[in-house]
Amino acid sequence: MTDLQSSSLAERLAARFGDTLKISTARNETTAELAAADLLAVASALHDEPGFSFGELVDLCGVDYLGYGQTEWDTQTVTGTGFSRGVEGEAMGRFQWSDRPRNVDQPRRFASVIHLLSVEHNQRLRLRVFCEDDSLPMLPSVSGIWPGVNWFEREAFDLYGIIYDGHPDLRRILTDYGFVGHPFRKDFPLIGNVEVRYDPDQKRVIYEPVTSVEPRVLVPRTIRDDADLLQAKAEAADHWREN
């Protein structure tokens, strides 16, 4: 127990697993990134070894990094033509397949993020595993170590299409019976692909391409960290001059 208190979780992880984990700590939260091939070995060590004893898997979710850091409204290069309406061009939240985001910055799209909790040591750890192949995202299932992950992996499969190898019952969970596609992917349109209505002629419920919704982006996505920084610096300089 003394050993636990004297060194931080990040240090102990680095000492135990070495280069297998890429560890970062921010806001008192420890994140470890690792390769899919190492996941099962690392996970069972984290679960079993008394120094870690992460007995509880609190959360697992998929993330699609497509379009990370991409904006819908570029205000850096304003020309005489004025601003765009923010509703044209390719980005997330677009509704045409041709406008889907295509990001070249992120080498890999899909990741599975696991949040672990150790009730004994009162500590948390985040694991992130990227899928090697974007066209067939596949990861080993940790359901043999934490059985409670069952539904969380089903959810990530349903919403992102990540296939968990070794999962006992990988079915869709949240979407409708017979649903096509993985709705939380960034290139899946917000309004969906099909809509449902009752057809009085055929006397049954039918699926059709979406026509009843005309979507608009009311607030474009913008990233202004540089502008904010400049502003803050200018204000600080003013403040300094005044005093």
């Binding site: 979710c61 699609d64 990370y68 996505r221 990233i223 202004r224």
Partner: peptide
């Protein structure tokens, strides 16, 4: 990712 909208909320 620094934008005015969340990139992912779970």
């Amino acid at each position: 990712d620094g934008a005015n909208k969340p990139f992912r909320v779970h």
